[in-house]
């Protein structure tokens, strides 16, 4: 498993994470080493094994009905926003 800086930059773009070129080299080396070690799990045959996504599948088997229970908390929730005007979040212009 060998990742190069370009792989890291591709993943960083997907994650919307700005990475400097020297950081990409640093992460490529580190993640390659980690994934090499993790490759031990690929030798186990799991062909017939159903994936387990969540402990709740085993613990209780279900979650509660997914219904809206909260009122509108916009004003409170926006108190922590970096920039708000008239109830809207302000961001840089998207369309010219």
């Amino acid at each position: 498993m060998s990742l190069i800086a370009a792989d890291i930059q591709r993943v960083a773009r997907l994650a919307r994470l700005h990475i400097e070129p020297d950081e990409a080299l640093h992460y490529a080396a580190q993640l390659s080493g980690i994934l090499d070690h993790f490759a031990t799990m690929t030798v186990i045959d799991t062909t017939a094994v159903t994936p387990l996504a969540h402990a709740i599948e085993v613990v209780s088997g279900s979650t509660r009905p997914d219904v809206v229970t909260e009122d509108d908390h916009r004003t409170e929730l926006q108190t922590g926003a970096p920039q708000v005007e008239a109830g809207y979040y302000l961001v840089p212009r998207v369309l010219e």
Partner: peptide, 29 residues
Amino acid sequence: KRRILMGTYALSAGYYDAWYRKAQQLRRL
């Protein structure tokens, strides 16, 4: 950042089955 990169990689097209799905199967075992 390292974990976001690793997680995004494991979920990305072409790598999902080899990493994320595999890990979930091992989770079952």
